[in-house]
Computed example of a mutant assay.
Amino acid sequence: MKKSNYSYIGISFIILVFGIYFIPKIIDRIKNDDVSREDSRTDFVNEHKSTPSDLAFIKINGKPKKVPHFSFINQDGKTITENDYLGKVYIIEFFFTTCPTICPRMNANLIKIQNEFTDFDNFGVASFTINPEHDTPEVLKAYAEKYGVTNPNWNLMTGNQEDIYKLANEGFNLYTAQDDSVPAGFEHSGNFALIDKNGFIRSRVVGGNPIIFYNGIISESEKVDETGMEQEITMLKEDIAKLLKE
């Protein structure tokens, strides 16, 4: 018999042994749903891949605007910087604890947002007091407890007033000023800024243009204010959810 025939017989024998030994095992795996589980794992990974959202990057001089450096003390006496928020989606606000007008409404809205994202450990809030002389870490701690702040990524921060005002007015273009002629002696924007996981300011596009900020004063239950302006808290929640998926 030729050598080539021996080779064919050997290969056929190996194929036969493979079929006898392995095919029943493959059938068992299919019956036991092992293959399906692999497919499910693949589906899970594909389903949870990050996907870019339709939210715009706020651009200054053609470049996406990023949160500038900051370093302040939070309600627990810890130093917090912008780096503590990397990898998180978060809201920025400027407020003060003795504010008699818009701050209570803003923070009531933030509490409701907080409570809708309790399952996300990468969601947070950065609140900067514009009255740091009064708002010590102890005062901020009491304020947080009063309003029901439970998110570990919600930092209420105090520090040098000049630095805070610069962060507000130049870093975010959120108006802040000390004015003895107004109630409680301070003025500030009632808007929220939305920040993505990489520290960029993002917003929804309406009518072809980014809205830049979200009104933080009008609640979902109020729907509109006395001027007819519609609430934007629902919009903000939807956009937070989009950024969390990125």
Rank of each mutant, 00 (worst) to 15 (best):
N198W: 01
I30R: 02
D28T: 02
N131L: 12
R202V: 12
M229F: 01
H134G: 10
S189Q: 02
I73C: 01
I233W: 10
L156C: 04
D33Y: 04
P104S: 06
K166D: 13
C103H: 00
L156M: 13
F120W: 07
D54A: 09
T79S: 14
A108R: 12
N153E: 00
F192S: 05
K66S: 11
A108K: 08
K25T: 10
V67A: 08
Y165L: 12
D196V: 07
F70R: 11
E162L: 11
Q161V: 06
L16W: 11
V205G: 04
D84N: 15
N151I: 01
D163R: 04
Y21S: 05
I73P: 06
T81V: 01
D43I: 03
T51M: 06
E238S: 02
K141S: 15
A241K: 14
P100K: 08
P64Y: 10
I58Y: 06
D33P: 00
M235D: 15
K66N: 08
W154I: 05
K237P: 08
F192E: 04
G19L: 15
S127V: 06
V224R: 12
T101K: 11
T234W: 11
F200V: 00
D180L: 07
N61P: 03
Y143I: 00
P64H: 04
R204E: 14
N153W: 00
G228C: 07
Q161C: 04
G124H: 11
L140M: 05
T118Y: 00
P137A: 05
S203P: 03
G87L: 11
D28A: 09
L194E: 00
F95R: 09
V17I: 09
K78L: 11
S40K: 03
G77I: 10
F128C: 01
D121P: 05
G228H: 10
K78F: 09
V182W: 08
P100Q: 11
T42Y: 00
M1P: 08
S50R: 10
P100F: 02
T136I: 00
F95V: 12
N74L: 03
G124D: 08
M229D: 08
T79I: 15
V139Q: 08
N198K: 06
K242E: 15
L140E: 04
I218M: 06
S71K: 15
K49C: 04
G199L: 06
Y175W: 01
D39Q: 11
T97Y: 06
I26W: 11
I60S: 14
E162Y: 09
L236R: 01
N151D: 09
I212F: 14
H134A: 14
P132H: 12
D196I: 07
D135A: 11
V182S: 01
T227H: 13
N215A: 13
I218N: 02
E187L: 14
D34E: 14
K63S: 13
E220Y: 07
I58W: 01
